[in-house]
Write a protein that binds this DNA or RNA. Structure first.
Lengths: 256, 256
DNA sequence: CGCGATTTGTGCACGTCTTCACAAGCGCCT
DNA sequence: AGGCGCTTGTGAAGACGTGCACAAATCGCG
């Protein structure tokens, strides 16, 4: 392993240099590494150690090294990782070498915000279409784009070669929209509606539920409260939490 | 074990009936079960089997049973789970018996949408304060609430006894806001800014990064494309994905 | 040219999560 | 009252993810 030759990234023509099938946990962390790497690059460093990158990404350095090793990584012992090269590698693996077009269905409260979110544009995506089922919303202009009716999905997807759909409708409408998306060839869905989607095999769904995140935090609050209520000496239950707002993980000190 | 007596939920006075410390993976799924249970309740069923609830929540029934067993669960063999009782139990464990107040910092694009998101209100939370650092935004009314300046945090937190903060600022401002939140006694943070927060021990942080979710989907798209490109017979690469938009997981057929 | 400082890549052990498979328990019907 | 079918709760096995600790590799310096 690790003869110094780049297996896939640079010659980005035919693609298909046999993507290694990474552990899901690793895949989920690669985007975070990518973001951290861009920060490091912006701060002028050409290389970064696993330690430095790990703390910038909020993980343990051993985990980071193992993750990177899975993609046949590009580090140099005694030196660290070449920032530019690693960015290129991760972007390649994540399929971000070309900007991906996504369709956003549901331009309500949340959809509106997503349509205007520039974090998508800066991280490899292009919102290529806004769609809604409500005729009252069709025609509205958001962020320079016109909202079209969801029934135009077939044309829209064909025009823009869209493979990813984002659902930001109410829960009741989500399954229907998912079916429509699948029917026109979308194979990845990001679902913001609080419901389970059922899709054919081969279609990937990820779900983001804002209330669930809060509920998980609520559990920990509850547990913390029930612990500080009994134990002996501690004192300073809910109201205290005195000074020390200092660091714990220390992500500063990146390259150097 | 499992003598039929409710360890904690009903007598909701003194609390502290020794929360069992659940596996994190279980905690992360409880909110989904809760949502599914409300659906079941709305459809009129009084009991539900692990199979039924599991498919409504999009998980495997063995996993659901084990999860519920961790909280000393309330099922009856041969019958299933009492829907109302289970709802009460899970809400208790998640600390949702009283509505929790949260402070939302950052009323930009995304923050605006979060402020108007009714999913919070209906799932046990109350947005008790909107804050922003930009003087131009202070005073604005959103959804019946007035935006206050972030420096008023100490008063706001005291007034409303807030323990959870939501950060929806740009990445650059997030760490500063987190420090401020921690300083006034907030012990749980939901972070929408694309950056790592460093906080003292005892403070919980959960992160939601919308672009990361898309990048994970992008990886799977890339992999699917690189697989359908080579293999022999398949054909129908990107453009096809013919009919069959049918079900796979089938979450319908809930109780019955 | 060799040596020491540094940092990656990884074998191994450990812990957590998932899944299977089945005994124990419950209600209903005869 | 007894038996039968259904469903929970759980032990045990397996899969997966994590973190330690160290050998291998590279650089820079004397």
């Amino acid at each position: 392993m690790s003869q110094h030759r780049h297996p896939g990234a640079p010659g980005r023509a035919g693609a298909v240099p046999a993507l290694p099938d990474l552990p899901e946990a690793t895949v989920a962390r690669l985007p975070e590494y990518l973001r951290a790497l861009h920060n490091v690059a912006d701060s002028g460093h050409e290389t970064v150690s696993s330690e430095g990158l790990a703390s910038a990404a909020g993980v343990n350095s051993a985990k980071l090294r193992k993750d990177l090793s899975h993609l046949g990584s590009y580090g140099t012992r005694g030196v660290g990782y070449d920032v530019a090269l690693l960015i290129e590698q991760i972007e390649y693996v994540l399929g971000l070498t070309q900007r991906r077009a996504v369709a956003l269905v549901g331009v309500g409260n949340l959809g509106h915000a997503l349509a205007g979110y520039d974090g998508f544009a800066s991280r490899g995506f292009r919102i290529a279409a806004l769609l809604d089922a409500d005729p009252a919303r069709v025609g509205e202009e958001i962020n320079g784009m016109i909202v079209r009716h969801v029934d135009e999905l077939p044309q829209v997807v064909a025009e823009e070669s869209i493979a990813i759909g984002v659902i930001a409708t109410p829960a009741g409408a989500a399954q229907g929209v998912a079916d429509q998306l699948v029917a026109v060839g979308v194979t990845s869905i990001l679902n913001f509606a609080p419901c389970v989607l059922s899709v054919p095999e081969g279609v990937d769904v990820r779900k983001v539920d804002l209330a669930i995140e809060l509920q998980i935090l609520s559990f920990h609050e509850h547990r913390k409260a029930s612990l500080t209520a009994l134990p002996a000496t501690g004192g300073s239950a809910l109201t205290a939490l005195p000074g020390g707002l200092a660091a714990t993980d220390t992500q500063e000190a990146i390259g150097t």
